[in-house]
Every structure is written in structure tokens, then in C-alpha cells.
């Protein structure tokens, strides 16, 4: 059980926030990794919507590989929340925490921050520490 990292993208594909906990393979180039991640999500989303019997419900919630699980949540405004955990945390319950991160961390500490300009990178200490403590409190951490 482990949580590796968190990504937040806006609708244009800009990475608003990246935070990592215990990942053993470090990143060579963070911006490359974020672009690849967004590209993969974009392809994955199109793919899964197309295969869905009901196109309105075809958005992926999570996937599991042999090493990790990726949890995905998107808002109607196009924000994409991604949490990467170890592969044994692959369940819908973990994905639901992303909704809470949106409501309790992003809305409270980024959107309600008067200095925050929408679409810019979020590097407020308060936001990051709340995110950190929220994720550390998860049962799968």
C-alpha cells in the first residue's frame, strides 16, 4: 500500500500541481512526464468513451497495471485529478477520495484564495500542506 504521486491538470493540459510521496523511480524531466501523462489521459479518455455502451458514462475511473494503479476524476469544467497508488489499491473507493480532494482542498484552498489566478500553477504552501495531510490520512497511504 502506497501513494506515489498526484497530478492536477486544467482543461488545456497545463499541469497545475504535481506532488509526490514515496516513488522510487525519480523523474528525469518533470515537464516531459506531465505532458506524457496528459497525452495518455487524453487518449485513454477518448478510447474508453468510444468503447462504452453509454457514452455519457464512459469516463475512466481507474486502471491497474502490474505495478501501479491510476485513479482519475474529472470535473465538468475540465479539471483532471490523478492519483497514482500501488497496484493493490485499485478500487473505486480510492477514486472517490479525488472528489474529496477537489471539494475540500482545491475549492477551499485554491479557488477561494483571492490571490489565485485561474489556470496558473498552484504553489501555495497552505494548499500543498493540506493536500499532503489529506493524502497521508488515507487508509491506502
Amino acid at each position: 500500500m502506497a501513494v506515489y504521486c498526484f497530478y492536477l491538470f486544467d482543461r488545456t493540459g497545463t499541469c497545475l500541481c504535481y506532488y509526490e510521496w514515496n516513488r522510487s523511480r525519480s523523474l528525469q524531466d518533470a515537464s516531459d512526464d506531465q505532458k506524457n501523462m496528459f497525452g495518455m489521459l487524453f487518449a485513454l479518455r477518448n478510447f474508453s468513451v468510444k468503447l462504452s455502451p453509454d457514452p455519457a458514462k464512459g469516463v475512466p475511473t481507474f486502471f491497474v497495471t502490474d505495478v501501479y494503479a491510476l485513479h482519475y476524476f474529472e470535473t465538468p469544467t475540465g479539471l483532471r485529478f490523478v492519483l497514482i497508488t500501488s497496484h493493490d489499491c485499485g478500487s473505486v473507493d480510492v477514486t472517490r477520495h479525488l472528489t474529496d480532494i477537489y471539494a475540500e482542498v482545491y475549492v477551499e484552498y485554491a479557488i477561494k484564495n483571492p490571490l489565485y489566478v485561474k489556470g496558473s500553477k498552484i504553489d501555495y504552501e497552505l494548499f500543498l500542506s493540506k493536500l499532503d495531510s489529506y493524502v497521508r490520512s488515507l487508509p491506502c497511504f
Binding site: L44, V59, P60, T61
Partner: peptide, 12 residues
Amino acid sequence: GFGIVTLETESY
């Protein structure tokens, strides 16, 4: 180096 093993969405 498997990639995705299981993928879940709201409908399948």
C-alpha cells in the same frame, strides 16, 4: 512491463 491490466469506468 504489462501495461493496463484492468480498466474500470462507470459503465463497463
